[in-house]
Design a protein around this nucleic acid. Structure first.
Length: 556
RNA sequence: GCCCCCGUAGCUCAGUGGAUAGAGCAUCCCCCUCCUAAGGGGAGGGUCACACGUUCGAUUCGUGUCGGGGGCACCA
């Protein structure tokens, strides 16, 4: 419908400007849905945009545009309003058409092929295997998974990837902590190192290690030797144990990854070394103070960065650059890294490293979506501690307390770049305070009506829709027709929260409609038309909830 | 000190160049002889942090100030 109106306007603008020395063909025609119902179904500011080049006042231009507008079977009325807005009022037939479209497309309604099957990788969570996942990882998981679902719905071939650092200082600390626990030393002992991990789960790892258990994680399997002196065995076992813990966290959150990437593999495969050699060959490096530096200031950084430390080891961003070269070589047209905002400083360095290599990677590749911190509240107070992890709230605690659906919804329903307050009491509430239940309830209500009707739903797409002429009918149909635009914009902006907002609005329209109109009425034509409308609504609620990874229950 | 994000109703948050700035909660008032009241309708509540610019038009863009958070190591 939008494309249809855009075409009408383009033709009008063309005929209007053909005598002026101004080319209207490359004019970006903006068509929006007015917030105010009195401003029609669609509105354009085209006349205002043409005011300057044509040197006429906007209202006069609007007048001429309307005169030049080709006739359309869908447009009922066109009006000029305000400073020169042109408002379109659609006929009932145009609005009702959406019901047939939804029925025909089913679970594909709202999807498009903008991605054209191109490869995109979404890297998210990427927690180091040093403990259970916490709320912050949960936010990354909810946002990242939803991004992946959105891109999929927009025609991209999506790979979900989890990268973890299984080498380096943090893992040394982990190994040491487990080893101490094996020897019976606890965190309250004076011998316990400052950098050691203090959570109770470290004791669980130690116990399992001493029992010579075998751990099978999603991407590895390790059996403990039980030898307290064997640091290498402890390291491998601890990493596997905690990776497995994280697998369980992710399973509880219903998130699956296609690929797990290990930092250590970048070293063993020689990818780090070859990246370093390429960087040296690029001429963007130099030696100073016994260290090797990358001149990241050539690419917009505020100071150069050390690549190889005086002790011979590489700094963290070097394997990170190697990892992204690997992503590029794997043929991803697009890469989106979903991370906590505390990793913000890596962006410039990784991109600088990739540009320095000069292998054709576009500037600004890869994309980043950074999420801000999560604060968990219960009973009006901040929750800071958990039994398992000690110093932070774990994702699994949260899922166990409020459920997977509510946790996913709340963590994905806010803009990623805003700080998020997670109110446990609200997320648990089984009342209309809680947007998750509000949306799911709309779906369940429809299911209930359809079940009581007990008719053949496959006959609904072809029924006479003419009884759908009330304001509530129109509002609901309009909302349904917006879904494809929401799915597209949400992916373009990498903003999954707009899906959550849309669903809340859709549920609201459904509840209003439901309250105003009885569906299972005597009059057969009216009944079938309303059933067709709620059936279409049910489909869109499902499709939307699917994008969030939230269930659509038939009963509540 | 420098960099990034945020600052919108009492609270949690949408909106991000356009026409009277929205929702939910909270407060107050209505609606179940009726398909799930986990619902609906209505009222009150805002100098869109502040200032100056750009624009026909700024909550939205730019600069600065003030708040909140995060990052500024040869840690990751």
């Amino acid at each position: 419908m939008k494309a249809h109106l855009t075409e009408l306007l383009a033709q009008a603008a063309k005929s209007l400007t053909q005598n002026a020395d101004f080319d209207a063909s490359n004019l970006a025609i903006q068509l929006e849905r007015p917030k105010n119902k009195d401003h029609g179904d669609f509105s354009t500011n085209l006349a205002m945009l043409l005011a300057k080049p044509l040197r006429q006042n906007p209202r006069a231009i609007a007048e001429s545009l309307i005169q030049a507008l080709p006739t359309s079977a869908y447009v009922e009325k066109v009006e000029i309003a305000g400073a020169g807005f042109i408002n379109f009022y659609l006929g009932a037939n145009a609005k009702q058409a959406i019901i047939g479209l939804i029925a025909a497309q089913g679970e594909k309604f709202g999807h498009n092929n903008i991605g054209q099957g191109r490869k995109v990788q979404v890297e998210f969570v990427s927690a180091n295997p040093t403990g259970p996942l916490h709320v912050g990882h949960g936010r990354g998981a909810a946002v990242g998974d939803c991004l992946a679902r959105l891109l999929d719905a927009n025609g991209w071939a999506v790979t979900r990837e989890f990268y973890y650092n299984d080498a380096g200082v943090q893992i040394d600390n982990l190994t040491h902590s487990v080893q101490l626990r094996c020897r019976g030393i606890t965190p309250d002992d004076p011998l316990w190192p400052e950098a050691g991990y203090r959570g109770d789960y470290i004791a669980d790892v130690a116990k399992a290690y001493l029992n010579k258990e075998t751990i099978v994680a999603d991407d590895m399997s390790v059996t403990a030797t039980g030898d307290v002196e064997d640091a290498e065995s402890i390291r491998a076992f601890s990493v596997a144990y905690l990776r497995h813990e994280q697998d369980l966290d992710l399973r509880a959150f219903q998130i699956k990854f296609d690929v797990f990437s290990l930092e250590s593999a970048l070293y063993t495969d020689g990818k780090v070394e070859s990246t370093v050699q390429s960087l040296i060959a690029s001429g963007h490096t130099y030696e100073q103070d016994d260290a090797l530096w990358l001149r990241t200031t050539d690419f917009g950084d505020d100071k150069d960065r050390v690549m190889r430390k005086t002790d011979g080891g590489y700094t963290y961003f070097v394997p990170d650059v190697a990892y992204h070269v690997d992503k590029w070589n794997r043929g991803f047209d697009r890469v989106i890294n979903e991370q906590g905002a505390d990793h913000h400083s890596t962006i410039t360095r990784v991109r600088a490293g990739l540009q320095a290599l000069n292998v054709g990677i576009p500037q600004g590749w890869p994309d980043y979506v950074l999420h801000q911190m999560v604060t968990v509240m219960r009973g009006g107070e901040e929750v800071k501690l958990s039994k398992r992890a000690g110093s932070y709230v774990t994702l699994r605690d949260l899922i166990e307390e409020v459920g997977c659906d509510a946790t996913r919804y709340f963590l994905a329903a806010r803009r990623a770049d805003s700080q998020l307050i997670f109110d446990i009491d609200l997320a648990r509430a089984q009342t209309n305070d809680n947007p998750v239940y509000y949306i799911q309830y709309a779906h369940a209500r429809i299911c209930s009506v359809l079940a009581q009707w007990a008719g053949d739903a496959s006959s609904l797409p072809t029924v006479d829709l003419s009884p759908l002429n009330s304001a509530h009918d129109a509002a609901l149909m309009q909302r349904l027709s917006e879904f494809p635009e929401v799915v597209e914009n949400s992916a373009t902006d990498l903003a999954p929260h707009t899906i959550a907002n849309y669903l809340k609005d859709l549920a609201s329209d459904l509840h209003s409609f439901y309250n105003e109109h009885k569906i299972l009425v005597e009059d057969e034509t009216t009944k079938l038309a309303r059933l067709a409308l709620v059936s279409a609504t049910q489909q869109v609620l499902r499709n939307g909830l699917q994008l969030l990874g939230v269930s659509a229950p038939n009963k509540m």
